[in-house]
């Protein structure tokens, strides 16, 4: 099934950030991810697409071990970050998640002030010293999340009082303030209107200059617009993985073609 010649590509590309090999995920008896191997490149936006329930979120959550928090979830295979096995016994998932940040489908700001939302990550990781430095970090994170202009006069207002799109950008600001190396985003724009979506997409494109970004999306157009690489999942299998342009113009697998032309869904 994995006829995508992954090995060849790994040899060609030396800036692989996350390398997943033969990953299996089980929820109890439910085999949710079957034999998936993906190499995620640094400074690249990788899009995961596929019909609902095919395991995109599940696989994404393997990459920063968020699945550890799900009772009954079992992950097999090997996933490395910069060559180190993240499922090694010695790895503390907390340390891993500081380097592999996550933005969720539903905006979930803390019920605290906007400032505290962004400052939380740097604070618990001891990234800054002193209030002045923290102010700078918060400001730059909010600026990069394209939220600064809207909230600079009400940093002490509750984050939950923002609009849905603003909340999602706040969550992104919160994630990037921790200075991660990889940013995982699970349908970050699914709750947003087209304008907010466009802002987020712009932001993702900008974030690519610093991190590897992995984004799960149901919108083919969005995947085409923001990503350089696309992975198509179907029923727990990785059907096809390659350059976004190639996936959308000349898919190799008939299932990919049916999906992007709207016949599986």
């Amino acid at each position: 099934m994995n006829d995508m010649r992954l090995e060849e590509r790994i040899v060609q590309n030396d800036k692989i950030k996350i390398d997943a090999q033969d990953v299996q995920v089980f929820y109890g008896d439910n085999h949710a991810i079957k034999d998936v191997s993906v190499a995620i490149e640094d400074k690249t936006v990788t899009a995961f697409i596929g019909p609902s329930g095919c395991g995109k979120s599940t696989f994404l959550r393997c990459l920063n071990r968020m699945n550890d928090t799900v009772a009954g979830c079992r992950v097999e295979g090997r996933i490395t970050l910069d060559g180190e096995d993240i499922y090694d016994k010695r790895v503390d998932p907390v340390q891993l998640r500081a380097r592999v940040g996550m933005v969720f489908q539903k905006p979930n700001p803390f019920p605290k002030s906007i400032y505290d939302n962004v400052a939380y990550g740097p604070k618990i990781h001891g990234l800054v010293r002193g209030k002045a430095e923290m102010d700078e970090v918060v400001e730059s994170a909010l600026k990069r999340a394209a939220l600064w202009k809207e909230v600079k006069d009400r940093l002490q207002a509750p984050g939950t009082g923002l609009s849905g799109g603003q909340q999602q950008r706040l969550c992104i600001a919160r994630a990037i303030a921790t200075a991660p190396e990889v940013l995982l985003m699970d349908e970050p724009a699914s709750a947003l209107d087209p304008i907010a979506t466009a802002q987020i997409e712009e932001l993702i494109d900008e974030l690519r200059t610093r991190f590897a970004v992995v984004i799960v999306t149901h919108s083919m157009q969005q995947a085409a617009r923001v990503s350089q690489k696309t992975a198509f999942f179907h029923l727990g299998n990785l059907v096809e993985y390659g350059e976004t342009g190639q996936i959308f113009t000349t898919p190799r697998d008939p299932r990919t073609e049916s999906y992007i032309t709207g016949r599986i869904g």
Partner: peptide, 19 residues
């Protein structure tokens, strides 16, 4: 979602709970 948010930016379980 609040727990996920905290864990997702690298808070430990105890930090997520107490904060």
């Amino acid at each position: 979602s609040i727990r996920d948010a905290a864990l997702g930016i690298g808070a430990s379980k105890i930090q997520a709970i107490f904060h």
